[in-house]
Computed example of a mutant assay.
Amino acid sequence: MQPAKPYKIPESVLVVIHTPDLRVLLIERADHPGFWQSVTGSRDTADEPLAETARREVLEETGIDIAAAGGELRDWGLANVYDIYPHWRHRYAPGVTRNTEHVFGLQLPEALTPTLAPREHLSWVWLPWHEAADRCFSPSNAEAVLQLPRFHAASSLP
């Protein structure tokens, strides 16, 4: 008998992948076509560092190795606490209804072609940041993309 799949940890990352000219990579969910998002994912273990969760999820969902691509991952110091959509609550322990999502930005030197995990995502697109925000199905993801110019400007200061 196969062991039961462990419950997801209700602490996750949201990684806004972008270029220096603020084009944003969005990926379309396979389990909900038409739902576009940035890279997201939960910690594998309670003690997994959030930056490691972000690196792992970017690699798993897009095939992009941040270090090899010359990317710069930044913790934006933002956390969103939100209700887990009812159709995804079965992935969490009974009674868990809220998730804490930590926001990161990942600047790549240029728009790369991702290699998607076909069981997770159907397609991808690079869009100007304001268009990307409009396409995100998740309000917290849209808000993070809208914050991109502010965080990008702050990271460019001497």
Rank of each mutant, 00 (worst) to 15 (best):
S12T: 11
A93P: 04
V15P: 01
E72G: 11
P33Y: 05
A46I: 08
E72P: 00
T19K: 01
V13F: 06
E60P: 00
V96E: 03
G77I: 09
V24Y: 05
T62M: 13
H102A: 06
T40Y: 12
L116H: 06
E57I: 03
V125M: 08
H32E: 15
P128Y: 04
V16A: 11
R56C: 06
L50V: 08
D75C: 06
P109S: 10
E28T: 05
L106M: 05
E120W: 02
V24P: 03
E28F: 07
Y85D: 13
P33G: 03
I27V: 15
R91E: 14
G95K: 11
Q37A: 12
S38W: 00
P109V: 12
I17K: 03
G105P: 02
L127Q: 06
V39G: 06
L108S: 05
V81K: 10
E11A: 08
H102R: 13
D21F: 01
P128E: 10
S12F: 05
Q37K: 13
R119S: 11
K8T: 01
A51W: 09
E61Y: 02
S42D: 14
L22S: 12
D31T: 10
D21S: 13
L50M: 12
A67S: 10
D47S: 12
V103E: 09
L78C: 08
N80A: 14
P10N: 08
V125T: 15
Y82K: 08
R29K: 13
D21W: 07
H102S: 06
R91H: 12
R98D: 10
P118S: 08
N99S: 11
P94K: 04
G105T: 15
A111W: 07
F104L: 07
P86T: 02
L26T: 04
L112D: 00
S42T: 11
Y85H: 09
L50P: 05
S42G: 15
T113K: 12
D21M: 02
I17N: 02
D31H: 14
T62V: 09
E101G: 07
L59K: 14
A54V: 07
A79V: 15
R43G: 00
E48V: 04
Y85G: 01
G41C: 07
V81G: 06
I9E: 07
T53V: 14
V58C: 10
T115K: 13
H87P: 01
Y7V: 10
L106R: 02
A67I: 03
L14V: 09
P109L: 12
V13C: 11
L50F: 12
Y7C: 11
P33V: 03
I66M: 05
Q107S: 01
G41T: 06
V16R: 03
E101M: 15
P49Y: 03
